[in-house]
Design a binder for these strands. Structure first.
Lengths: 195, 195
DNA sequence: CTCCTTCCCTAACAAGTGTTTGGTAGGTTA
DNA sequence: TAACCTACCAAACACTTGTTAGGGAAGGAG
């Protein structure tokens, strides 16, 4: 009936790895069970469906992400410092929840249509509001360029950060903070040499 | 036995739309047939498997992409002009083969492992060689910044371009060339206001 | 020892999967 | 008219899918 929370988390972690590597639909419960060293049916002692595993992975990821984002947004920083902090927190999140982020990237678009995953659309809306608002504030205070389509800029900044989840591996030669620093340097200053 | 090439292309186009919207594994042959206004079995008059549809979509896409890239790379342009031309051609490709690009983005990573799709890995290697080489040339000739990790820069430029396929819709308010121009401006000059 | 809980296995289920086989309406060719 | 080809349908196939039901080993509690 009831299962220990530690075992749940273990199984969710391995499930997330398989989901991230193979894609949710391509992942069978038997593959997850294999990776966990048990049989398919045994998973249903801990979870009541494959979909609820995905749900739990994504919702706990988003909960933690927003805890970090809210802390940044409520700190009263300037536009540029806010962007820097949001990007840095994003890379930290990628560092610690790489699999969940990769799943979110791949699956959230078509999951949003299902009622069960409506919170993905809500989160995306808050996401857009936070980033777009900060960018607009930066344009108004002459911190960011005014000659760019701001919506395009938003997508640009957002995507450059989160696609990193598709290639980033923790324990590589760059730390999350170092990658954030270089990304910010590219996004803010550009890659062309100034004379 | 044999089918007309025009009908094949029609069916491949609708199949690509469904693959891009739902993901390859989540797309059943019955859904493709539905979208094409026929029954599942009828698809096998034109194609010998679902996988060969995917194969044909991706390989024809890559063939056309490389025809464009090779033309740019053989033009003898400077590093900055080469990057600009590659980015512009990429956005034109996204404009004209949005579905194929979206599929490539989503599925190529785990398809590469299958022998049938080994050409995806080959293409990615050529891809990296072309972009990395141009960036290195730019650093050597003092056109691009030398203080950045060049491999990180490569992933940055590559990703910022191709993720656009996930939200770009042809016929929007910006043309492919206009988006390319703004993207290049952000990547090269940065989004921060210079004083 | 006995009871109970935790955690997993064995074995099956119904539904959905990609694919095949045989047939057939309609047009083209001879 | 007769033979033929194109493009599809109808119905089934073997297999995989997520999920369920009953059982049992291990270990702690009384």
């Amino acid at each position: 009936m009831s299962a220990s929370p530690e075992r749940r988390e273990e199984l969710l972690a391995t499930a997330a790895e398989v989901f991230a590597a193979q894609g949710y639909n391509a992942t069978t419960v038997r593959k997850i069970a294999d990776a966990a060293g048990m049989l398919a049916g045994s998973l249903y002692y801990h979870f009541d469906s494959k979909e609820s595993m995905l749900d739990e992975i994504l919702s706990t990821f988003l909960d933690e992400l927003w805890a970090r984002y809210d802390a940044v947004l409520e700190a009263g920083l300037g536009p540029r410092e806010t962007i820097e902090a949001l990007v840095t927190e994003s890379f930290r999140e990628i560092d610690q929840h790489r699999a969940a982020v990769a799943i979110y990237q791949k699956e959230s678009r078509h999951l949003q249509t299902q009622p069960r995953f409506a919170y993905l659309a809500d989160s995306q809306a808050r996401f857009e509001k936070a980033w777009l608002g900060t960018l607009e504030r930066g344009v108004a205070t002459e911190v960011f360029r005014a000659d760019l389509d701001i919506r395009l800029t938003y997508r640009f900044v957002r995507d450059t950060v989160w696609v990193a989840a598709s290639w980033y591996r923790p324990g590589g030669q760059h730390s999350a903070e170092e990658i954030a620093r270089q990304y910010l340097s590219m996004v803010l200053e550009g890659i062309a040499l100034r004379e």
